[in-house]
Amino acid sequence: MKLIKYFFGLVLIVNISSYSTMGQSIFNNTFVDIEGNEVQLSEMKGEKLTVLDFWATWCKPCIKSIPKLIQLSEEFKDSGVNFIGVNEDSPRNSSKVKPFSYSLGITYPVILDSDQVLMNDLLINSLPTLIIVNSEGEIVYTHVGYSNNDEIILKQKIEALLNE
């Protein structure tokens, strides 16, 4: 009986997976950046694409990915693509975010989501997660985790989305 119930549950999940994801503007959110400025996401978005990288100082793969994301952000900065770091450190580590970001040499803006508001709204359940949002506010790509050379996949994805 339990197996039947779970089979039913799995079928349900697979079915709802087939529904398409429509646009939701995630830009209608205000955050504080690592400089202490209050910023509206809509003012930070890219003309064509916005890449949001959810990370934390204790997350090893996040830290590995950041130098590669810095390179990508430089590469696409004149193509209407803006990168934003969304830091998910709790109060335990939040004091380290600014010095850590500076020493990593992050050139794109980093906002603080220490209450995990954006993370919960988007049902993100692991770090790092990178999402690409189009100019309409629709999430067009999600990348979970980071392994060496993943930046190649990201670069190809951004190029493909720019060419659509």
Binding site: F8, L12, I16, Y19, T21, M22, Q24, L123
Partner: peptide
């Protein structure tokens, strides 16, 4: 308890045209 997600999912078929439906599952 199964009824609620079913209602939400069925509702979402129409709701998608007016908003955004999203979900995640951990098993």
């Amino acid at each position: 308890y199964i009824k609620l997600p079913v209602i939400i999912i069925l509702f979402s078929a129409n709701a998608n045209s007016q908003g955004n439906f999203r979900g995640s599952n951990l098993l």
